[in-house]
């Protein structure tokens, strides 16, 4: 039997999301959805209370959301919303 340990092996390592507001929000949103939560409700709860209990530990989302302050995430959301709607 051939010894595979001598061969070069490819490892697939899951990429950590970049710490941009967009990536953080999308990663957390998906994790909440996968666990059966209403992601909007949970994220709103987190923004108004600051309590990470709102965010699931699934896919490390609870730790990921704390990589940026709440105000930085909210800034992204509000800027995006205004940008998208200002000419309507």
């Amino acid at each position: 039997m051939k010894d595979n340990f001598q061969e070069t092996t490819m490892f697939k390592i899951e990429k950590e999301p970049k710490d941009t507001p967009k990536d953080i929000l999308l990663t957390v949103f998906d994790a909440l959805k996968e666990k059966g939560y209403d992601p909007i409700n949970q994220l709103v709860g987190y923004f108004i209370s600051g309590d990470p209990t709102y965010i699931t530990s699934h896919r490390n989302a609870r730790a990921i959301i704390r990589r940026l302050e709440r105000d930085e995430l909210l800034e992204e959301l509000i800027s995006f919303y205004i940008e998208k709607n200002k000419d309507i």
Binding site: N41, G45, G50, Y54
Partner: peptide, 24 residues
Amino acid sequence: KEPHVVDVANFLNRMGANVKGAGT
């Protein structure tokens, strides 16, 4: 505003309840 108040609200919402503002 204790974390376990939020945890209970989360659980109730997972059951289909409509609880908002827990943690405030």
